[in-house]
Amino acid sequence: MIPLVPLLLGIAPTVASWILGDKTGGAVEKVTGIAREILGTDDPSGIEAAIARDPNTALQFKTALIQAEADARRLEHEAILAQIRDVQSAREQTVRLAEAKSPIAYGAVLVSAIVLVGFAVMLWLVIREEVPVNQRDMVTLLLGTLAGMASSVVAYWVGSSNGSMQKNAALEKALAQK
């Protein structure tokens, strides 16, 4: 199916990016399904011949690919919005627990402190001390894991950037209008 890539780059760039990205299997299956349904073939040379032969069929094929691309983007947007709602819900829960004077409200603070202190200590040890050769892989893995956790802690407390928040608001508005 790789011969389809140049054809797709001209017809539906996002579909082509699926193929060039990590969604290869699903994208190829989707494109070949559309080609079989509309053009009667999933052979790259047969697709090119069918498109060259009939402009109306070519337009129908291009429209179906664009619709598939739009559907994929809509699903991605819905997943992002669900993630935003999840984060917002977690923060609201923390506020409600704090208002109720529940000790559970300090759970996020405690976990955040443990992660950040753990990352700082581990980073200090790695910089300050020579890591034995037989432990370098383990130390690197641990430091990388703690760095990811520290990044998540900062994202939780600081939130996303203003541009990202504007994008999310625009996505919510666009999806609400549908």
Score class of each variant (00 low, 15 high):
T57M: 15
T57Y: 01
I34P: 00
Q83T: 12
T57N: 13
K62I: 03
L65K: 03
R53Y: 06
E69S: 08
A72K: 00
D71G: 06
Q60K: 12
D54V: 12
N56T: 12
D71M: 04
L75V: 03
G46L: 07
R74C: 09
A82Q: 10
E78H: 15
D71A: 14
T63C: 01
R53T: 15
R73W: 01
I38W: 04
D71I: 12
Q83K: 08
G40S: 11
A70Q: 11
P44Q: 14
L65G: 03
Q83D: 03
E37Q: 13
A35V: 05
L81C: 03
D42L: 02
I66K: 10
G40E: 10
A35Y: 01
D54N: 14
F61A: 09
T57G: 13
L39H: 10
A52N: 10
F61E: 12
D71C: 12
L75C: 02
A64W: 06
R53V: 02
G46F: 02
P44Y: 05
I66F: 07
I66M: 10
L81M: 11
I47C: 02
D54Q: 07
G46A: 03
T63H: 15
G40M: 11
T63E: 15
A72C: 05
A49T: 06
L75T: 12
T41Q: 13
D42E: 06
D71Y: 13
R73T: 14
I80M: 08
P55C: 13
D71L: 08
A49F: 14
S45Y: 10
E37C: 10
R36S: 09
A58F: 04
A50G: 05
R36F: 08
I80K: 04
R53Q: 07
T63K: 13
L59Q: 05
I38M: 09
G46P: 01
E69M: 04
G40W: 06
I66D: 12
Q60Y: 04
L81P: 00
Q60C: 12
Q83L: 06
A79L: 15
A50Y: 02
D43P: 01
I47T: 07
E76H: 14
P44W: 02
E78F: 03
P44V: 07
I80S: 02
L59G: 08
L59C: 02
A82C: 05
E76I: 08
G46T: 05
L81R: 15
T63L: 14
I51Y: 00
E69A: 08
D43E: 06
F61K: 06
S45K: 15
E69G: 15
I84L: 04
E48A: 13
E48K: 11
S45R: 09
R36N: 11
I38D: 02
T57P: 00
D43K: 02
R36C: 01
N56A: 12
